[in-house]
Every structure is written in structure tokens, then in C-alpha cells.
Design a protein around this nucleic acid. Structure first.
Length: 602
RNA sequence: GCGCCUGUAGCUCAGUUGGAUAGAGCAGCGGCCUUCUAAGCCGCCGGUCGGUGGUUCGAGUCCACCCAGGCGUGCCA
């Protein structure tokens, strides 16, 4: 058998006789053998408190009774019963040989597993509006969604990545209105700007024009309506924009042509941004193609009693079915769709198309309730969907200066951010490598900048609202992607200098029975399980943690004079070199899962 | 008002589903470059886990109430 998770296999081997001893004493084994939290408690520990009642014995005595069984295992070098825990020390010479061979050859060492084998999963993420360029918040969504998809694939799942682009609606018409009324026929090509930025500029121009109109009409008057009410009421601009939306829905050729042109610009810009971020999709849905879906579902639901008619004729869902109060409309009184209608239809269409076991929506936590309601309705419509729908809810990204507010112009543009991070990385690179040519410098700086961004966006648990610190994100010290990249580059450098001088030499594995090497091996042993857990929990922060822990342990190893590879005796050198190769491979695996380029030199 | 989320070191965050003396990074202080890359390493300092009760061998973790912050509570998306 091929061990994909060596630690799990070692634990299984060692735990077998312990479990047998527990059974012989008349109890079911229920407490796992696991690495202890305390550093002075050996390599693996078994808490025995749980068995105290069954055995009618003190935990300390149980631990002592189990000690003999543990001591007989070849991989165990020492046993100690302390405070109700059974602590085991491993035979690191034996472990080292197995671990290095495994880490150099097994896909499991790179975080691949079969934990979710055969499971069909659809992941929807990004879902941008085509009226403005993407910002830092979209970056978190894009990177989070893409990495979760990657992790699920690594765990053996059959993953489909989808993006539902919100390319129609009143907000799209606002940019179109501004372009038509305030533009001079500019194009991205003529101006040399990305199309999404050009469209976004007109969205800003719309807002300015509307604010100016509102101020002109209502300044100083205390019976002023709210801005939304004004827009949806007598505002001349509002009326024109709404007329545009109606014309779009009536498929007016001129409006459709303008819409197609501007959306094309925006989508081309998004494609560039995705490409640079290394984010991709198997399928891109557009709301202009899905917005009429779901009406038939509502009709059927009305007949089946899932929905009912409100007094004014709207089709509504009684939220008390979900333990909530009030009603959720799924068709307006005039028979038109709401956003939820489309969501219902799209979900059902995907279920028919993909037959998924799970569909994950990567959407911010401000929509928690929306998804609670959506999933509740979908499950009522088709009980087969029970348990198959999940919302990967994530918190906002804040800045050291506070929250991002589009009205206050404090949003961080995604493209600008990547440019800035690259430029900052380039400055450091140019200092360290004065002779490097421009293209290579740019390539490395891009990899470093994106590494900083991605790692920083992934290192927090999804639900955490965190503060993005651009400077800290590309620091080579601390818990960053750049730090992990550096460890990989150092490993590469050592191996280049070694130039296979250890080829054919039998490694002296006992040389790895030293503090720094053991710390590296412990980090390596824990890595695959951590990655599998990251997939199961949909928590990429576990991946960044596991990769960082390995990088840190490895940094302590290659920095210690007693662990030097190049100056070591042949047998010792061969063992250390193999450990470096193994750690490097695993680090590369971790970085790859995050979509981070591992640089050979930096 | 109601619902959900959050509150852990000066700052930013972890805490493996109830296990040993609560961790990491940053910042601060002190060391280490004629170097297997200083884009690094080593050490020190730093906590009544928001509060009060409860559950049990054992609570940052589970329960109740309270305090503070965020988000939501559309026939918007």
C-alpha cells in the first residue's frame, strides 16, 4: 500500500497494540494518539483520563499499564507515563528514512489525498458586477474561492469552478448612461486604459452627475426625498437610466449594442486581472442569460404549495418554514423577477447540469441571510438538495486606515495593488541583485508581490474580518508568502551547490536525530493532514499555517552550523541533502496549492 | 426590537471541535554576516482568553444572562 499520509500510518502502526490493550481491558479505544501540545512530552501522546471510569483506575495507572505495549513497537524509542498521559518518543533514525523516501516520491506529501474522492463539487466565486473594476474585496473572494477549489481537487474531489457575472441591471445602465451623455466616444484602446477601468470611470461620472442634480434640486430644502427615492421617482437622470433598463429588457438594438460594447470592455479587463492573479473558471455564467430563469420554478412551487400569493399578487415564501419571521417575495406583484428568482433557477440548472454532491457559494457574510433563505427555498422545492448547498461566508477586508468605502474613494483597486506590490518587491530585488537583467527582475518581483498578496488573503480564517497591511504582506520576515518562498529558494541554492555530490552515498539516517532536523520532520509529518483538513473545512488558512510551519522549521535547520550540508561527512551529508530535497519538494507543494510561484532564486 | 458573527499579548491573528504550563507573527529589547543568500537566524519581554454564573475529573472551547463592536433584518443585488 502507498501511504499518502505517513503520519497517519505511523500513528496507526503505533496505536494498534495500544488499542488492543484497551480492548483487552474491556473498553473501546476512543481517544486518539496525537502529537502533544507540550514540547517536553515526547513525540506522541495518549490522554488516558477518558478510560479512568471504565477501568476504575487512576489515569496515571492506566498510562503505566499501556506503557509496556507501546514500548514493544519498533518505531517507539521510549515511553513515559506522566500526569495521566502516555508519552512516546519515536525512533527518529527509523522514522527519518521512511519519511524522506515518502516525501520524495509520494503525492500525499504534496498535500494530495483521497479524503473527498468521487465527490462532485461546484464552486461559485468572484461574481463581479461589470460596472467597475475589481478591488481588494474581490481579491479575497477570487483567491479564496480559487484556492478552496484547488484544495478540494487535491483532496480528490471532482471540482467545477463557475463564475456568475452580474452583467445586467440598473447599475450597469448607470455606467452606460454616463458614457452616452458625458463621454466623447472614448475606447480603452484609444486611451490606453483597461476596459473595466474605463467603464468604472463612467460609473463614477454617473454618481457625480446624479449627486449634482440632487444637490441642485434639493439643496437647503427640508422636504428633500431620500436619494434612492429621488432616483426612482422624478429625477430626470433616474428616469433616463430606468428607461434604458426597460429598453435593454425590450432588446432595443442601440441600447443592446452599447451594453455589449461596454460589457466587452469590462470582461476583457477582468480576464486580464484573473489571468494575472492565476484565477480561472471552468464556466462563466452571465446574469443576462440567467435572469429569466426561475419563473417556471415559482409557478410550479405555487401549485405545490411551496409559495403562495400575497394580497397584491406577489408570489411569496413563508419564512416561518425556516424558523424566521415574515415573507420572502420570489416574484413581484407585477410578475417580474427578483434576484432570488434567478438564483433559484440558476441553482436548479446547475444541479441538472452537474449533478453535484455539493455546491459552494463563495460570497461575503453580508449575504448570510440571503443564502439561508435561498437554501431553505431550494430544499423545499427539491428535497434532494438537502445538505448539498453551502455558503462559504467570509468577512470584509479592512485597511490600516479603516474600512474601504467606495463613496469616500478609499477602495484599493486590484490592478493598482498588484502593481504596487510588484514595484515594492522589485526595489528590494534590485538592491540584492544589482546585476540581474530587467526581465528576470520583473518576473521575480511579480512572483514575490503576488505571493505576498495571496498568502496574506489566505492566512486568516474565511469568516475573520481582517486588516490588510500591504507593507507587511511582502515582508520576507514573519508569516508571509515571501518567507515561504525564501525557504524554498535557499533549499534550491544548497542543492545547486551540492551538485549531487552525495549521489550513490548511503545516507546515515541517524544524523537526522538532532533537534533542528527533527523539527523539520515533525512539520513534514503534519503537513498532509493539515492540507486535507483545510479542504474538508474549506479553510485555506490551515494550508498557509502548515506551509509556514514547515518553512520556519526548515529555516532554523539550514541556518544552524551543526546542520550544514556542504561541509558534512559523506554519509551525514547524504542524509541532510535528502532531507533538504524532501522539505523543498513539500514546500513547493504547499506554495503550488496557494497558487504561489516558487522561485529558484531570490 | 429580532437574527447571525466577533471580542484571546501594545498591534494583527491562531487555537486541531472539552485535554498537560493558552500559541504565532509584528512591534520593543539584546545578540549573530571574510555568509551552504542578512529577502535570514538565535534569545528576552509581553495574558485575570470582554464580564458574571453554570455544566465536569478538566472550559479560551459547551450552556444561560449581561457588556461592547460589526453585519443583516427589501416585492434591492
Amino acid at each position: 500500500m502507498t501511504p499518502t499520509d505517513l503520519q497517519a500510518q505511523l500513528i496507526a502502526e503505533i496505536a494498534a497494540p495500544l488499542d488492543a490493550a484497551v480492548r483487552a481491558a474491556g473498553a473501546e479505544p476512543e481517544v486518539p494518539l496525537a502529537p502533544p501540545t507540550r514540547e517536553d512530552a515526547g513525540d506522541l501522546a495518549l490522554p488516558c483520563h477518558r478510560y479512568a471510569r471504565v477501568f476504575r483506575k487512576a489515569p496515571q495507572a492506566i498510562a503505566q499499564d499501556l506503557a509496556a505495549a507501546a514500548d514493544a513497537v519498533p518505531l517507539v524509542a521510549g515511553v513515559e507515563a506522566a500526569g495521566g498521559f502516555l508519552n512516546l518518543r519515536l525512533d527518529w533514525t527509523a522514522v527519518a528514512e521512511r519519511l524522506v523516501n515518502w516525501a520524495l516520491t509520494d503525492a500525499g506529501a504534496l498535500g494530495h489525498s483521497t479524503a473527498l474522492a468521487g465527490r462532485k463539487v461546484v464552486v461559485e466565486y468572484s461574481s463581479p458586477n461589470t460596472n467597475k473594476p475589481q478591488h481588494l474585496g474581490h481579491c479575497r473572494n477570487n483567491i479564496l474561492g480559487h484556492t478552496v477549489a484547488t484544495l478540494l481537487e487535491a483532496a480528490g474531489a471532482d471540482v467545477t469552478r463557475v463564475n456568475l457575472v452580474n452583467d445586467r441591471g440598473i447599475h450597469i445602465c448607470k455606467s452606460m448612461w454616463a458614457y452616452e451623455h458625458l463621454g466623447q466616444g472614448e475606447t480603452p484602446e484609444a486611451l490606453g486604459v483597461k476596459g473595466d477601468h474605463l467603464v468604472g470611470d463612467y460609473y463614477v461620472k454617473f454618481n457625480n452627475a446624479f449627486e449634482a442634480e440632487y444637490a441642485e434640486v434639493w439643496a437647503g430644502k427640508d422636504d428633500a426625498p431620500g436619494k434612492d427615492a429621488w432616483f426612482n421617482g422624478d429625477s430626470p437622470i433616474g428616469q433616463q437610466v430606468r428607461a434604458m433598463l426597460r429598453a435593454w429588457e425590450a432588446e432595443d438594438p442601440a441600447v443592446r449594442a452599447l451594453w455589449a460594447t461596454m460589457n466587452g470592455w469590462c470582461e476583457a479587463g477582468f480576464a486580464q486581472t484573473y489571468d494575472r492573479m492565476g484565477v480561472r473558471f471552468d464556466h462563466i455564467d452571465k446574469e443576462s442569460q440567467t435572469y429569466l430563469l426561475g419563473k417556471d420554478l415559482v409557478e410550479r412551487g405555487l401549485a405545490d404549495g411551496v409559495f403562495h400569493r400575497a394580497d397584491n399578487g406577489a408570489a411569496v415564501f413563508a419564512l416561518e418554514k425556516l424558523g424566521l419571521e415574515g415573507e420572502k417575495a420570489v416574484l413581484r406583484a407585477d410578475g417580474t423577477s427578483v434576484y432570488t428568482t434567478q438564483d433559484l433557477g440558476t441553482a436548479m440548472q446547475r444541479y441538472q447540469r452537474y449533478g453535484f454532491d455539493e455546491m459552494i457559494y463563495v460570497v461575503g457574510n453580508e449575504q448570510d441571510r440571503h443564502f439561508q433563505v435561498l437554501f431553505g427555498i431550494l430544499t423545499e422545492l427539491d428535497p434532494a438538495l438537502q445538505g448539498k448547498l453551502s455558503h462559504l461566508s467570509y468577512g470584509m477586508v479592512e485597511l490600516p486606515s479603516g474600512k474601504m468605502k467606495s463613496r469616500e474613494g478609499t477602495v484599493v483597486d486590484a490592478d493598482d495593488l498588484m502593481d504596487e506590490l510588484q514595484a515594492a518587491a522589485r526595489e528590494v530585488g534590485a538592491q540584492n541583485w544589482p546585476d540581474l537583467d530587467d526581465a528576470e527582475l520583473a518576473r521575480r518581483a511579480e512572483a514575490v508581490g503576488l505571493s505576498g498578496l495571496k498568502f496574506f488573503l489566505l492566512k486568516f480564517a474565511p469568516k475573520t474580518t481582517f486588516t490588510f497591511d500591504p507593507e507587511a504582506s511582502i515582508k520576507p520576515e514573519g508569516e508571509t508568502g515571501v518567507y515561504c518562498q525564501y525557504a524554498y529558494a535557499r533549499a534550491t541554492s544548497i542543492l545547486e551547490k551540492l551538485a549531487d555530490a552525495d549521489a550513490g552515498v548511503t545516507p546515515d539516517w541517524s544524523a537526522l536525530d538532532q533537534e533542528q532536523a527533527k523539527a523539520v520532520m515533525k512539520a513534514m509529518l503534519g503537513f498532509p493532514g493539515t492540507v486535507a483538513q483545510a479542504a474538508i473545512d474549506k479553510k485555506p488558512s490551515l494550508l498557509t499555517k502548515g506551509t509556514f510551519d514547515l518553512a520556519r522549521a526548515f529555516a532554523a535547520f539550514y541556518n544552524h552550523p551543526d546542520c550544514n550540508v556542504l561541509k558534512a561527512e559523506p554519509g551525514v551529508q547524504a542524509a541532510r541533502a535528502q532531507l533538504v530535497r524532501a522539505a523543498r519538494r513539500m514546500l513547493g507543494g504547499g506554495l503550488a496549492l496557494m497558487g504561489i510561484t516558487a522561485l529558484e532564486s531570490m
